[in-house]
Design a binder for these strands. Structure first.
Lengths: 334, 334
DNA sequence: GTGAAAGCGCTAACAC
DNA sequence: GTGTTAGCGCTTTCAC
């Protein structure tokens, strides 16, 4: 391995000066800088990130925390989109991404411990289950964090405008003439609660009464199966809704399947609107009307915030990304 | 930060002995070990991975290389499934995963340089485009690698049994009475070529002639749009195929869209079979008959191989994971 | 502008 | 069983 000492030896300068060149110090003469750079090139020098981190206490690494137990984690398009956007800006700012789990060295540990051992500079958290004690521990630590779809006063947060999206969804159904509008909720998650809240708010604004039987919770993992189950429940209601607003596209897909399995039609008998706009839904029959989240923008913004904190900013930030109604075929006009 | 020196001071032992305890050396008395462990616990000691790596030249980190230019990268369910499986076993073996890009420190560099700077112990490569010069450079290096869907004599490889899967697909169509079977290819990728090969092989075995107009290439990125385009082309053929074997589910979905847009029915007029079994396709109308790849097993196996190499094994391994025909509604019997 | 010296936290000979 | 010593590759005072 080529080190700065090799370059020092070759050029006759000291390791200190070589180091200064690679750290863009101003007090190196242009001539010296050039010679050192040439020697580095010639020797094929590459810096050693571990050695650098050991002295500087900066790893230029960002930990990525996401849902593992459900396994849905990375497989969900929401996660993938956010990470893609996050990676884009963090990479361009010089940071690499590392997955953080509760395992380390094959042994169980906490997220916080894992982060400290690896010396990550910050963490992006994409974890629907905010009751996890290990997550709480991380929140209380002093490690820079940005949270997606969470609320916090100590850490920065980013989320979609869930309220506005839900209101759009309900208003869209209303404008089509629907009055009996049901809701399949996203469980006990931040997004799920906001969307429920948006639904309730919109119903009230429109002076529509909410039949308690018309609000059922899907599980926090937003799976198709969970949507199917929820729809089965809705179908048992004394009064059948004419439209359903599902808090996630997977839930909506499950709901569509349930409706069809009862020999009913979407949108003939029941209109369905989702939330997310994951890629698949535009190919369904009928294609799904939904509220599009800009996952890429969510990731971008999260990275901006986290790096701001890592690099010394101490203001706790929080931002909401606009969402958009995408009209397709799954909702009909009455 | 608590170091082994703090523990040494507190317990009266030397840093060496403390270090030995954490590295499970046998020559430490049980009593000493216990005292040191207690002190560590009490002080809240956590090891410093950078310092450790600096001396041992082992980072317990595995680099993940995947397709970035297309952006399809992590968003494709294939990638997500493989990584999920890969992460599972590597984590349990003590390794963490880090994304490797061509950017580092905000500057352009090569994958190989990135790996060396970060000191990763090995790399898993999930890159359809094997003509990338930076990928070639990595292949020629001595860094432990495992490649997915690639061929190599110097590095270990894992892939699905693409040939067998393609043969299954064609035979399935044949058994349903189809004789005019077209193919939408996966472009100039390893998997794409194997699947084309399997198609050709099966056609020959079944003594079916292949109309050259019935073989069209989708792009290497396996997108829906690419499948749509390819199907449009097939629809121009002098003789219309009764069935199409698409080299990927996205391609198949695109093909279905094209068929429908011409007022034709799947499977009424044209039967379609895909490859992958990504989650969405079972919810399509008609649901897609396809060849299922076990992406999780692919990832598991890749991790096993890579860790084998990292930990000193010098045999170049290669393995093929079985695939499976999943019959749904998109192929009809003639 | 340049360099000497110390130290980041840890492990690995080797001696005792 | 335990400790001494040196060193991994780099950065950072601080002196020149």
């Amino acid at each position: 391995m080529i080190t700065i000492y090799d370059i020092a030896k070759l050029t006759g300068f000291s390791p200190t000066t070589v180091s200064k060149v690679f750290n863009d110090y101003a007090d190196v003469s242009p001539k010296t800088r050039r010679k050192i750079l040439e020697a580095a090139e010639q020797l094929g020098y590459l810096p050693n990130a571990h050695a650098r981190s050991l002295t500087t206490k900066r790893s230029w690494t960002i930990g990525v925390l996401f849902n593992e137990p459900s396994g849905a984690g990375i497989l969900h398009p929401y996660f993938a989109g956010v990470i893609e956007g996050f990676k884009k800006v963090s990479t361009s700012r010089g940071y690499d991404l590392m997955f953080i789990s509760k395992d380390i060295g094959g042994k169980k540990s906490s997220y916080l411990e894992h982060c400290k051992i690896r010396g990550v500079d910050g963490v992006v958290v994409i974890l629907p289950d905010f009751t996890d004690p290990y997550f709480l521990e991380l929140l209380e630590s002093s490690i820079p964090c940005v949270l997606l779809d969470q609320e916090s006063v100590t850490k920065s947060t980013v989320c979609s405008d869930n309220m506005a999206g839900s209101i759009m969804a309900v208003e869209h159904l209303y404008s089509l003439g629907h009055r009996l509008i049901a809701h399949i909720g996203g469980g006990n998650t931040f997004a799920g609660k906001k969307r429920l809240q948006g639904y309730l708010h919109a119903m009230e604004e429109l002076r529509l009464s909410v039949n308690p039987e018309h609000v059922v919770q899907g599980s926090y993992d937003y799976t198709v199966e969970s949507g199917r189950l929820a729809m089965e429940e809705l179908l048992q209601a004394s009064e059948r809704p004419t439209a359903v607003f599902a808090a996630g596209d997977n839930l909506a897909v499950g709901a569509m399947m349930a409706v069809k399995s009862h020999g009913l039609s979407v949108p003939g008998d029941i209109s369905i609107i989702g939330f997310d706009d994951i890629e698949m839904v535009k190919f369904l029959t009928p294609s799904l009307t939904t509220i599009r989240q800009d996952t890429y923008a969510l990731g971008n913004k999260a990275a901006d915030m986290l790096i701001y904190t890592i690099e010394g900013g101490d203001e706790v930030q929080s931002d909401m990304i606009p969402v958009q109604l995408v009209i397709r075929e799954s909702c009909r006009s009455l």
